[in-house]
């Protein structure tokens, strides 16, 4: 399974929550109304804006959809080699 790094830029996040609607296993809102990142619905080491996770192709597709739905493009996805997969550079 591919290993990816998912990151929310909390400064850009405005709490639109479209990522939560599409990929709730990966994104939830915190008390600051910012999206934080979960690993398959869990929060090892507590609430974080950035984490590594292993995903299937389908899960990857859905996380990508969640990132694409963000109106401020606050979600960044990197592959294992550190290449930014989204947003397109």
């Amino acid at each position: 399974m591919p290993r990816i790094r998912v990151k929310v830029d909390e400064d850009l996040c405005i709490g639109a929550a479209s990522c939560v609607t599409i990929a709730p296993e990966t994104f939830q809102m915190n008390a600051e109304n910012k999206a934080f990142v979960l690993d398959h619905g869990t929060e090892p080491e507590g609430s974080k804006y950035e984490r590594w996770m292993e995903v299937t192709d389908d899960q990857m597709e859905n996380i990508l959809l969640g990132a694409q739905s963000c109106p401020t493009l606050a979600i960044f996805i990197f592959n294992e080699a550190g290449k930014q997969l989204f947003p397109d550079m």
Binding site: D11, L12, I14, A16, P71, T72, L73, D88
Partner: peptide, 23 residues
């Protein structure tokens, strides 16, 4: 482009080219 990003652009939190969602 993202209308929601326009305030970020005005405040120089993102450059103008970042508001576009497609090339």
């Amino acid at each position: 482009y993202s209308r929601v990003l326009l305030p970020h652009y005005v405040k120089a939190k993102v450059p103008r080219e970042r508001v576009f969602l497609k090339k």
